[in-house]
């Protein structure tokens, strides 16, 4: 087995790019689950994927096009008063159709669509690492401030609005963060790998953690552990990264069966 590949400088950039998302996505997923909007991640990921494919057909930078279309999804969400997952299901179906149909009209678009499905992390370059790091800095700056507002909006609906705080704008801001994260992560590691990190790691943490701080830590640890194992397995076994990561994260879902705290 080519274990020496693990230490090849060629794979350092992809490794750190993926590591950033392995930390960020599970944390965002924790808040999405708290807001009962976990399907948002898959909706924004599919829109981002469709944006990337259509953008490449139009000669636009795929990452920017992905961010733009995923951001359009957030704007659409902001116009709908009802919460819930219905709109995200429509985004998934529409995004998937646009991505697959769009990929039929150009070689580059077809390659990109295949990358979004396979999640070929190993082909990411310095631009994607820099983008991921910039996003991580924004995320680390904004989330500690945003967190109590998001939690209060879930547990004490009406409390912040009764005191004149811009609850809708804060929710919109959070959705922008989610859309940007999943659009960038989908371009780097694939749509389903991004969704697996955002859905399953928090699902396990919700069941097992005795409190919110531990839930944050646990969801990050699950994301990092799954990512490290997937990175090694896919590289050494010459497997597509996305499905490898998804398989490992799905196996980790069994952790939900562990005994729970009161």
């Amino acid at each position: 087995m080519p274990w020496d590949l693990l230490f090849d400088p060629l794979f350092r950039l992809p490794f750190f790019t993926g590591l950033v998302f392995a930390v960020v996505l599970p944390v965002l997923g924790l808040y999405l689950r708290m807001r009962e909007e976990w399907l948002a991640a898959l909706g924004f990921a599919h829109l981002g994927g469709a944006g990337g494919v259509v953008g490449s057909l139009m000669g636009l930078p795929p990452v920017l096009a992905a961010l733009g279309v995923a951001g359009g999804g957030v704007a659409a969400r902001g116009l709908v008063r009802r919460t819930g997952n219905d709109l995200y299901a429509v985004m998934i179906l529409g995004g998937w159709a646009a991505m697959i149909l769009g990929s039929q009209f150009g070689h580059h678009a077809r390659t990109l669509a295949q990358t979004l499905v396979d999640g070929q992390l190993y082909f990411t370059g310095i631009e994607q690492l820099v983008t991921a790091l910039v996003f991580a800095v924004v995320f680390a700056t904004v989330m500690p401030w945003l967190s109590p507002h998001l939690l209060r909006a879930r547990l004490f609906p009406g409390q912040d609005r009764a005191n004149g705080r811009p609850v809708a704008m804060l929710g919109f801001g959070f959705n922008i963060l989610v859309a940007a994260a999943v659009a960038l992560a989908s371009m780097a590691m694939g749509v389903m790998a991004s969704f697996a990190l955002i859905f399953i790691a928090p699902w396990v943490a919700f069941a097992l953690a005795p409190g919110w701080r531990v839930a944050l830590l646990l969801t990050m640890l699950i994301g990092i552990a799954a990512y490290l194992v997937a990175f090694v397995m896919a590289l050494v076994g010459d497997l597509p990264f996305g499905p490898t990561l998804v398989a490992i994260v799905v196996v980790l879902a069994i952790l939900r069966l562990l005994p729970r705290w009161r």
């Binding site: 547990l155 004490f156 609906p157 009406g158 409190g211 919110w212 839930a215």
Partner: peptide, 29 residues
């Protein structure tokens, strides 16, 4: 203003999980 809604915790019936301690909830308020 401090508001106590009639809906209470309003747990999602499909999961019914909220991983916050009482201590963390009161700190939010």
């Amino acid at each position: 203003v401090a508001y106590q809604a009639q809906s209470g915790l309003n747990l999602d019936p499909s999961s019914g999980e909220i991983p916050l301690r009482v201590r963390e909830v009161v700190r939010l308020m």
